[in-house]
Computed example of a mutant assay.
Amino acid sequence: MSDPAPSLARLLPGVAGALEADGFDVDPALGLGRWPRVCTVLVDGLGARLLAERGGHAPALRRAAQSQPDGAATELRTTVPSTTATALATLGTGCHPAAHGLVGYRAFRPGGTGVVNHLTWPADVDPEEWQPHPTVFERVLATGVPVTMVGPKQFAGSGLTRAALRGPRYVAAESLDARVAAAARALRATPRAMVNVYWGDVDKTGHARGCGSHEWAGELERIDAGLAALRRLAPADAVVLVTADHGMVDCPPQRRLDVAEHPHLREEVLATAGEPRLVQLRTGPGAAERVAGRWADALAGRAEVRVLDSAVAAGWLGGEPGSRVRARVGDVLVAAHGDLAVVDSERDEASLLGMVGQHGSVTDVETAVPLLRLLP
């Protein structure tokens, strides 16, 4: 996490600066320049290292990587945990997890052992109270610049959208071609425009088949062709930016640690949250150090195990969480290295147990994401 690449938190404020929206400044480190229309495409799961390894399947993105402006950032650092809900909240608010509070796929409910799943979202949790910071979109809209979000119908008004990405006019479009067309229309509709597109099938394919699979390569080819089409349809005075929320690691079943087979790892653990690549443990009073030691011994060389204060000091949450957010984070955090995933076959849902590709940890493969400009 010592890489000097700018964080994902800086991207949308930098886009607003490129649009010359009131109250935002140009971010020299991003090297975006000034544009009256900007389209940001977030390709879920498209880590920078994966793109570099498999760039032969993405000619448009490969050409873009070779023609970036001198001195412009071509990578960003995403959040830790490096997971979709956390990263989207950081993208949308410009805040780190320690501030916005979406601290993983699953976070603890304050004062208890229950969890909030940030993707499915419980009915009794108000997303706008859970994440109260204004989004960059809301702030840009207040300056008079039109803002549009293009994504699947199921995300319109969802808990995660309301918490992390609220504000824009939402255009529902299911297929890649439909999203490309909708984004191009939004860019052309007004002299100034901030347009944002979400595409999730790279991530879905990686979870189901693995990011080393032929299917993943095929999905990369498809999104690359879609991005090339978007560039052709976009106005000449628009820039198309491509980024991601996280990378991915393939975790073979035989390399996983199943907590159900190691019952001593449950000792003094009241509940678990997070994800298989960054497990969060809620412990009994005064037990955090003992639990951390137990897990560190069991995972020697395969994971980095820290109590919460140590994880904060290492920069895992991007800052010092206040009491509101601290109550949602585990007392012990277990960040997987290599191809390790930590599961519990007695308690985890089948969909989680069946995933091949995983993400969430602190590794370079998971935390480095691209920032590529598709120029006219």
Rank of each mutant, 00 (worst) to 15 (best):
G322W: 01
R37I: 03
H96G: 06
L76E: 05
A163P: 06
E304C: 10
S361E: 03
R109K: 05
R373P: 00
V343S: 11
L227H: 02
V325H: 04
V365C: 02
R139I: 03
H214Q: 13
A225N: 06
L88Y: 12
D297V: 14
T148D: 00
R34S: 15
S361R: 01
V279G: 10
A260K: 03
P132W: 12
L141F: 02
T120I: 09
H207N: 00
G360M: 05
L19Y: 06
F108Y: 06
L371C: 08
E174I: 00
A156H: 12
Y198Q: 00
P36R: 04
L299Y: 13
V41K: 00
T93I: 03
A287V: 09
G293W: 09
G357S: 06
L102I: 15
D124H: 06
G212C: 11
V307S: 05
W121A: 02
R106A: 15
H96A: 15
V332P: 03
S82H: 07
P122Q: 01
L230E: 01
E53P: 06
A163C: 11
P191E: 15
H246I: 04
V38P: 08
D237S: 00
V365W: 01
V279I: 13
L11R: 02
R256V: 05
R302F: 01
P69N: 09
G218S: 13
G200S: 15
M194N: 10
V116A: 05
R49A: 13
R166E: 13
C95A: 14
H100T: 06
V342G: 07
A327V: 01
D258R: 04
G159S: 10
E366R: 07
Y170W: 15
P263G: 10
G293R: 14
N196F: 15
A189L: 09
E215S: 10
P132D: 08
